[in-house]
Amino acid sequence: MSISARIVKRFRGFALDVDFESESKALGILGASGSGKTLILKSIAGLVTPDEGRIAIGERVIYDSAAHVDVKPQRRGVGYFFQSYALFPHMTVQENIGIAVNPADDDDRSQSEIVSCLTERYQLAGLEHRYPANLSGGQQQRVALARIFASRPEAVLLDEPFSALDSYLRGNMQDELLRAMEDYQGQFILVTHSCDEAALICDTIITISGGKITSRGGVDKAFDVCGGCRALGKGSTRPSSEANDCFMRP
């Protein structure tokens, strides 16, 4: 399966114009803030309508300006991990996960079975009746992940999933995500401004700047673009100052 997207969206003083196709399990979109990376994710999820373009998941076209196709976000089968998790504050952990389970597509297992399986899987057992405000940051992330997978998306979009975390939680979350990716069939797109994260999670990386794609390819290639990042694994090139983020590995 592949995700293909051509997205054009113009604002005053900024235009997003990208075109990419990804077959890989995890695509990283790397760029500074204001480069338009979140806009790409929101367009794919259907939370923002592009001015023109075409977005398809596999054979399924979810947006096509020429053919006037604009599938509702509900029917796109795209999970979205918000930087702030966006857990429903008035619902318990159980309710947050349960509301994402669509009973119609589960004949064999009941909603509560799916919820308890997911709470087990994301180490939330015992927390089912807590409200998000009474959870730690790490627990909130796991609820957010569980809720996304409860809705059975075909693709999962992650918007800077680690940026709000301290380094300890960041490590946990990265492990969590890698584990989720192992047992999940769909594709992932990760938006980040950190080379490190992109390298750890993704197998293909697109870099964007000013709303345009500036490079695409495997992890090595993106690291070239980051400027001297090869030093991480291979040679001894001195890092350029712009690429500091890539060297903040503990």
């Binding site: 999820a45 939370l47 976000p73 702030s84 966006a86 429903f88 509301i99 998306p153």
Partner: peptide, 21 residues
């Protein structure tokens, strides 16, 4: 916060359920 409505849409809740839930 509109983010809750956006989250609700991406996990597949109908507009009606979004209003009531």
């Amino acid at each position: 916060d509109p983010i809750f409505m956006q989250a609700a849409r991406t996990i597949g809740l109908s507009e009606r359920r979004i209003v009531f839930r």
